[in-house]
């Protein structure tokens, strides 16, 4: 009986201290989760600003200005040709069905 009582008291003490430790671990963990959430929120805010900055820098009027400085312009007639008409080797380059076999 005495052993049982001693064991019970010991278990009570052990449980109490374990719960105490677990409680504090939980609080630490909750604090860490809060920090991570804060960091995620901050990162999302930064991403939103960077996304807006990128869209602002990539706006068509700015890109068009730079493109013109480089001598680029919308596609015009004569800039495109078919492979067949531009092929200097004419029919010699055409793959015939028997060549495939």
């Amino acid at each position: 009986m005495r052993i049982l009582l001693t064991l019970a008291v010991a278990m009570t003490l052990l449980s109490a201290f374990t719960l105490y430790a677990v409680n504090y671990d939980t609080r630490d963990l909750a604090a860490k989760v809060r920090d991570r959430e804060k960091a995620i929120k901050a990162a999302r805010r930064d991403i939103a600003i960077l996304k807006t900055d990128r869209a602002h820098l990539a706006r068509p009027d700015r890109i068009a200005r730079h493109a013109r400085e480089l001598g680029l312009a919308p596609a015009k007639r004569g800039q495109f040709d078919t492979y067949r008409s531009s092929n200097p080797f004419g029919r010699a380059m055409t793959v015939r069905s028997e060549d495939k076999e």
Partner: peptide, 20 residues
């Protein structure tokens, strides 16, 4: 003493279960 320990243990269990 036992009651005191039980109270503390109970309180710890409550805190652990409910959080603060």
């Amino acid at each position: 003493m036992g009651l005191a320990f039980l109270t503390i243990a109970g309180q710890l269990v409550r805190l652990a279960m409910q959080g603060q």
